[in-house]
Design a protein around this nucleic acid. Structure first.
Lengths: 337, 337
DNA sequence: CTGTGTATTGAAAGCGCTTTCAAGAATTGG
DNA sequence: CCAATTCTTGAAAGCGCTTTCAATACACAG
């Protein structure tokens, strides 16, 4: 493998000049530059990234730490996010580096190791301590979602509250009064926001949340199935179900069929739709009404925000809330009388 | 941020000694070492990884490049693999670095950049050119799956041929003669192997492959649905279906219900099961008979193999084929007469 | 012809760490 | 008590790059 020294020697130039030619410095003779590029190509030169990093102090990579015990690792949503994120960064010649840990201190160590120029913080918890740690360090990071703490931080989130407020309100407008909510686990901030949207919409109609109709669980197919079974076993089963994920709704749908309930006629369902390419809500047997916000887009956006952040954009300019659209299809209709 | 120099100065020792203490060199005084570790802790010292990498020539990371257009990015299987892989490496203090690209040359550039000590090659195609490129470079890599080319390379794969041979044979033993195969796309090596297992089992019963019963598609829920619809529209619909993925089988199952066919009674189904935690085949409405091989395990294993590889283990000792188990549950039964 | 300005290049000092080589201190055996 | 070992440490080179600072060459105006 040729290094800069070899290349410089081969060209009869100094390393400095070669380096400048390679890095588009303005003060370089056009012809010299051309020669350098040719020679670099010829000798198949690749700058050593460790050396470059050491010299510049930039890592050229952003980090992401995967929770070990948590469901991130098994969450089909995550791969879509990661796809958008990685692709957007690759376009700028930046890498993403992954590690796995449940220890919040790992974030600190990571930030301090110089391995990455910034971090993305996934799946924030209510009052997430990682946000606090990174804020104190003044290390650049962007949260995918939001937390409830007092710290000011950059984030990209969808309007979970608004989405579920609107969805619930729509069901109420259709005459539904017993509306169930199948939500993510209680520690997740997004689950809380969605719950609050749901609660607030109900409150506007003077309806109190019936805790028998609200479930928190991992958003898997099975959990959708199981909780729908429980819901249908109620004396007064709900006439509508709000569900936090399309995968979970698959399970809801499976159980409803077993219950001989037709979605959109006997019972209304609105699902949240993260726009997963392997699970299209428009192609369900009964096309689903959804609140939609593609998670892949979050990956792309956050990549851009992270880049802005390390280039000096203020935190206050990096707090994006993306509205989810309510898309009405066949799974919702007026409440049976 | 304290660096080695600061730390050495603070201790009144040379950088060399401090470095040795920190890196568990044998030739260091026990007491000195203790002091150094204490001071490091006190000053919150973190070695700069770029510097360390430059000095050692090791990156402390393994790479993975995500195809952009391909389905890897949207494949729920992939996240399970990645989880196992990342976790196993994190335990050894190694990172995984991700990038996205469809250009095989990216692998080359990556390998040469010094960013990673080795690569894993996912989703190999039939006669995959990436295998050839990396082999020629003598760069350490492990393939997740196999390819058909002549190159000798390290790989971890499941016995796709055997799994589908066994599954098909089992269906034949149950009296099925019209057996459909819903498989992955034709360019994927695993899809070919599974097809061949299927074909070989049929051949042993003097049955020719009926091309109307074999489909290649993305392994999504929808595709499972769509192709099952097509299959059921046949004059002579198949009495059994083999399916390459649990997610796809979800779609199969959805369509069968619409066709009023009960799985395991009217029609038998065997699915491949990658052991995804978000989709358990034992909890399907009709518990699925499956060929099972957890994909997460592949991630863990490959991490270990990569480490072995860079430590000098011969390629010939790093070619693992993992048997899949055939697990019989309620979705299979004797063919209707 | 001198002085000023501009364009281009080179020498060399790092970036923060590891590691070789050599030296000093401490220990042991005779 | 001296020579031979064994421990333990330090000086310094080097990993491959970037970047500052200075130097050179050349053009041009006065």
């Amino acid at each position: 493998m040729a290094n800069l020294k070899d290349l410089a020697q081969h060209l009869g130039l100094s390393q400095a000049t070669v380096s400048r030619a390679l890095n588009d410095y303005p003060t370089i003779n056009a012809e010299t530059k051309k020669k350098v590029l040719e020679a670099a190509n010829l000798l198949n030169y690749r700058p050593n990234s460790s050396a470059r990093r050491l010299a510049t102090g930039k890592a050229g990579a952003f980090g992401l730490v995967l929770p070990v015990t948590d469901n991130l690792l098994t969450d089909p949503h995550f791969v879509d996010f990661l796809g958008g994120f990685t692709e957007a960064l690759a376009a700028e010649d930046l890498d993403v580096v992954l590690t796995a840990s449940d220890n919040p201190q790992t974030y600190k160590r990571y930030a301090e190791s110089g391995k990455v120029d910034g971090l993305v913080l996934s799946n924030p918890k209510i009052d997430d301590i990682r946000v606090q740690i990174l804020s104190e360090m003044q290390f650049p990071f962007v949260v995918h979602g939001r937390t409830s703490g007092p710290a000011q931080y950059a984030f990209y989130d969808i309007d979970n509250h608004g989405a579920f407020l609107t969805a619930t309100r729509h069901l109420l407008d259709l005459g539904h009064r017993r509306i169930a909510l199948l939500n993510g686990t209680t520690d997740a901030m997004f689950a809380r926001s969605r719950f609050e949207g749901y609660r607030d919409a109900l409150a506007a109609h003077d309806i109190k949340v019936d805790s028998a109709l609200v479930f928190n669980a991992q958003m898997t197919e099975e959990q959708g199935y199981t909780h729908t079974r429980i819901l249908c076993a109620h004396d007064q089963r709900p006439t509508a179900i709000l569900c936090s994920s399309a995968l979970m709704t698959l399970g809801v749908s499976r159980r409803l069929r077993e219950e001989k309930l037709q979605m959109g006629r006997d019972i209304s369902v609105i699902s949240h739709d993260d726009g997963l390419s392997s699970l299209k809500t428009e192609n369900f047997s009964v096309p689903l009404s959804v609140t939609r916000a593609p998670i892949r887009e979050a990956g792309t956006e956050i990549a851009g925000m992270l880049i802005s952040r390390i280039n000096g954009t203020a935190i206050s300019d990096l707090q994006h809330v993306r509205k989810a659209e309510l898309i009405l299809r066949a799974s919702t209709s007026t409440a049976p009388v």
